[in-house]
C-alpha cells in the first residue's frame, strides 16, 4: 500500500516538474527574432525608472512615428504593453508574455486566425516541413502591429506577350 502511495506521489511530482519545464521552454513555435526597429529593444533601457502614465493620450514626444490604425479609439499602448515590465506584453488575464510569443497576445482577439496560424494555414512557414528546421513567422513579421492591414505592393512584370521581341517563335 505504502509503495503504491509513494509511486503515485513520485508520478505526480514528475508530471508537475515536466509541466513546469515545458511551460518555461515552450519550443512549440520556434520563431525568428521579432522585426523590432534597431536599438529600440530592450524597452526598459529607456523606460527604466520612468513611471508609466496611465492616461489614454496621443504620444507627443516619443514614438511619434507610430500611428495607431488598429482599432484606434478603442485601444492604446498599455492595452498590450505592460506598464511595469516594459519588455513584456500583458495578456487580458494579466499574464506577461515575451515579444517572441506575441501570437498569444494577438490570438486573444483574432481567435480564428490564431487557430489557423497554429495549423499552418494562416501565415507562412519556410524551410523544412519534414524534419529539419521549419521556421514559423510571428504575426508581426507580416503585419505592423500598430497598422496591421497588409499594404498593396508593386507586382512583378507580366510575362512577355506573343509579339514581344524577347519571345521566340
Amino acid at each position: 500500500m505504502r509503495v503504491l502511495v509513494y509511486s503515485f506521489l513520485l508520478l505526480f511530482l514528475c508530471s508537475t516538474l515536466s509541466y513546469v519545464q515545458g511551460r518555461n521552454v515552450k519550443v512549440e513555435f520556434p520563431v525568428p527574432r521579432p522585426p523590432l526597429s534597431k536599438g529600440i529593444f530592450p524597452c526598459s533601457s529607456c523606460h527604466e525608472g520612468i513611471p508609466a502614465n496611465p492616461t489614454k493620450r496621443q504620444l507627443k514626444d516619443e514614438h511619434i512615428n507610430i500611428k495607431l490604425h488598429h482599432a484606434e479609439g478603442v485601444r492604446w499602448c498599455l492595452d498590450c504593453h505592460d506598464p511595469t515590465n516594459r519588455d513584456k506584453f500583458k495578456l487580458a488575464n494579466g499574464e506577461l508574455v515575451a515579444f517572441t510569443e506575441s501570437y498569444l497576445l494577438c490570438g486573444q482577439c483574432h481567435g480564428t486566425t490564431y487557430r489557423d496560424w497554429k495549423a499552418g494555414i494562416h501565415g507562412k512557414r519556410t524551410g523544412y516541413f519534414d524534419g529539419g528546421n521549419r521556421t514559423y513567422l510571428l504575426c508581426v513579421h507580416c503585419h505592423d502591429p500598430h497598422d496591421p492591414k497588409f499594404k498593396p505592393m508593386k507586382p512583378e512584370p507580366p510575362p512577355y506577350g506573343p509579339k514581344n521581341a524577347n519571345n521566340v517563335r
Binding site: 512557414r125 524551410g127 519534414d130
Partner: peptide
Amino acid sequence: GRYPACVEACP
C-alpha cells in the same frame, strides 16, 4: 523535405 520555392516566396 523542403517547401517549394513558390511557397517560400509568397509574401
